[in-house]
Design a protein around this nucleic acid. Structure first.
Lengths: 207, 207
DNA sequence: GCAGTTGCTGACATTATTGTAAGTAACGGA
DNA sequence: TCCGTTACTTACAATAATGTCAGCAACTGC
């Protein structure tokens, strides 16, 4: 029996979903999947927990929507810097993966299996399926141009593929265990070490 | 009232703990922390779930013991190959992190915060605290020798540090999102791509 | 103003999971 | 062979999480 006659907020379905997903994403990035409890997420948004079930059907439905959203945003963030210099791309990828916490999100999605070898199409719309290839294509073209202009031999395609792969794995690893490595190497933590490392890697990748 | 007069197995405390930790570790590597449920782990071992509480006090106690064990074993595995060639070290690190599933374990431990910037000493006995530095020391010495023998200039210390860091992050990233990258790059999955990549990285790191 | 749609709530049902208590049986030492 | 210790069990308590249901209220079109 609700004595509550006070005003009751009503959002559009889309708006409500967005708010819920944002709150859930924040919790996921900070505390892992275990931190996504319907009660808590609902409290963050300021609704009751059945409201989430109303919009997403079940907790698993929320997780799926979350995964879609995360992968879509990750793709958009990464492809937004496709035509920059090597160094800029590294910094951008690192910023996206590290600072924004997407590395954890990506890792979570991968381990859930939906982005793995078989289930890639299950999440998002599949348009990001060959994201890495697109990146490699763009970069390879740029490298070939550079080589042409300076009269050097054109780089091997596999070399570019592997360079992209190295950048991706390294920035991903940096985001997840960077601080641990700095500490374990006995260096003064700081973002400085990591920035110098990115510079160093950028030069290395530019051969 | 137990009608069960059948034989009742009794292990030593150490043996029981070991079995429980092994089962929990397996679950952790395959399904993440959520997959560690006392009932399930107990069933794997063939005991009742209060037996786990008897040995570890609480679920959190089990998690802590698990973390200690994982970090200790990881350290032992990695340091076992400290004096091999660059290529061998890469393969070994990759095998440990990837095939044995320690990347997930390490990532889990890091995200729990006990291995992070502040709490490193909380897990294990701290003897692995400067593991990366030890590795870098050994490798730097080896590089200096090589340079000496071939008459080249001695490599910069920071260069070695960063090379170690690159190997660590890259192999860690490979273990976690390697299959995704292969697929997203449009390459035929297989361990072959990854092995060639490791070869390529090995040569790159040997300058 | 009226009615239908639907975002949303409160109370409840269900179930899963950790933790407790008391007792049993296996082993080791005397 | 008895005795103490302790690994381990069954039964139960307590809590916390997801999910269900009936109804309310905010907006829409008429």
């Amino acid at each position: 029996m609700p004595a509550r006659t006070a005003s009751r907020r009503r959002r559009t379905a889309g708006e409500a979903k967005r708010l819920i997903l944002e709150a859930a994403e924040k919790r996921l990035m900070e505390g892992g999947p275990e931190a996504i409890r319907l009660q808590d997420v609902a409290a963050d948004v300021g609704v009751s927990h059945p409201a989430i079930l109303h919009h997403f059907g079940s907790r698993e439905g929320l997780m799926l929507a979350l995964e879609n959203r995360a992968l879509t945003r990750l793709r958009d963030d990464l492809l937004g810097s496709a035509d920059a210099s090597t160094q800029e791309v590294l910094d951008q990828v690192y910023a996206t993966l590290g600072d924004k916490g997407y590395a954890r999100l990506l890792n979570w999605a991968v381990q859930r299996g939906l982005v793995g070898p078989e289930g890639a199409a299950a999440a998002a719309d599949g348009s990001g399926e060959h994201m890495i290839r697109d990146l490699a294509d763009a970069w390879h073209a740029s490298r070939c141009e550079d080589a042409d202009a300076t009269g050097l031999a054109a780089p091997d395609r596999e070399d570019t593929d592997f360079a992209v792969r190295l950048a991706a794995t390294a920035m991903f690893g940096e985001a997840l265990i960077g601080p641990l490595l700095t500490r374990s190497a006995g260096l003064g933590d700081d973002a400085q070490v990591r920035r110098r490392f990115r510079r160093w890697l950028g030069e290395l990748l530019s051969d």
